[in-house]
Design a protein around this nucleic acid. Structure first.
Lengths: 185, 185
DNA sequence: TCTTGCTATGCAACGAGTTGCATAGCAAGC
DNA sequence: GCTTGCTATGCAACTCGTTGCATAGCAAGA
């Protein structure tokens, strides 16, 4: 049930509407957590009725009004409790790995295109992350007091970058393995 | 709905009962896909009624009888169709990343223990993978004709190893970032 | 005016995944 | 005889996540 907590963190970083949260989940938060607008609206409604968040109607010009959510006391407490409780290392689910093992019983060569597509997607994401890093974290050295929020956001982004690099290298490894079959025939 | 396909792949590698599949999902398959015995039994029942798998009652000595499942023609066709269809790069969900960003609004220092725990879990997994690699893939050089099933299993395992190594390095990075806050106070 | 497109919120239905519980065979040890 | 523990299968209830659809405000351009 960490979607609740992901939303609370995002609202602490900056209050916003369900729609805006959905945008963020396509961008920065989405690097490590995905959610559709449906999920977000549902959770926001539940958290509102539980008193975890406050709502404020915000009239806008040139576009429909929105409801801006911000974290209330009980929501902060709930988040704090979760932050202090241990969680289990996440379970991984890689469709592509299933495909790779399955390809042995079908047509390994047919996998090459698919792996290349995934490699491209990860390359794109890596570039996207690196552009974001250059934009949002330009100074790598010591300049002023350490800002926890900023430093930790950067650390998470570095994790995303490391993940994409690892994936690209691994997919190259897979492609090399597949090429060996081609050569061996 | 890739659990279906993960089960089909596992049954192609070796027929077995729901219980045995659940064991495998705690081991090799579980490196990249998790499932409880409940899910597995439910899916097996559905696939049986759809004619994707065949069942065989196997009496055993010293333990309860089991139902051994193996892949039937339609199941193989369904798997093949899935293997040839493109899939989207998987969406990631990292609870720990949510915690790290959330810690900025709570107590960053309280995160250290949790990050260390996760680091340990990944170290353990890495060792487990490497032991499995040494056991199941002892020969790295060319010895005989390339065996697709074996080579692709090895490639997936190398992916798991690369993932754990990346995670350990990243968690060290996070710990170093947290240590800077401590030093900065 | 009409369509397209983005912002903004939401319902309903379904499918996937989790948790708690229940049953049963058999072995081993107290 | 009783408990503990592993093998083996399964139901029921619930929560989480996905998909399709619906509504509505407003801007811009054909």
């Amino acid at each position: 049930m960490a979607l609740d907590h992901a939303i609370l963190v995002s609202l602490l970083e900056k209050p916003g509407s369900g729609y805006e949260l959905a945008r963020r989940f396509e961008r920065s938060i989405g690097y490590f957590w995905t959610a559709t607008h449906q999920q977000i609206y549902r959770v926001l409604k539940r958290m509102e009725s539980d008193g975890w968040v406050d709502v404020r109607d915000v009239p806008q010009q040139g576009r429909p009004d929105k409801k801006e959510y911000s974290v209330a006391g009980p929501g902060r407490d709930a988040l704090s409790a979760w932050l202090h409780a241990p969680i289990e290392p996440e379970s991984v689910r890689h469709d592509l790995a299933v495909k790779i093992r399955g390809a042995a019983f079908d047509d390994p060569a047919a996998l090459i295109g698919e792996v290349r597509r995934h490699r491209q997607a990860h390359t794109d994401r890596l570039e996207h992350y690196r552009a974001g890093e250059a934009r949002d974290f330009p100074s790598s050295g010591a300049d002023g007091p350490p800002d926890a929020e900023r430093e930790l956001q950067h650390a998470v982004l570095r994790g995303g970058i490391a993940y994409e690099r690892m994936m690209i290298a691994w997919l190259d490894d897979v492609l090399a393995t597949l090429a060996r079959f081609e050569a061996g025939r």
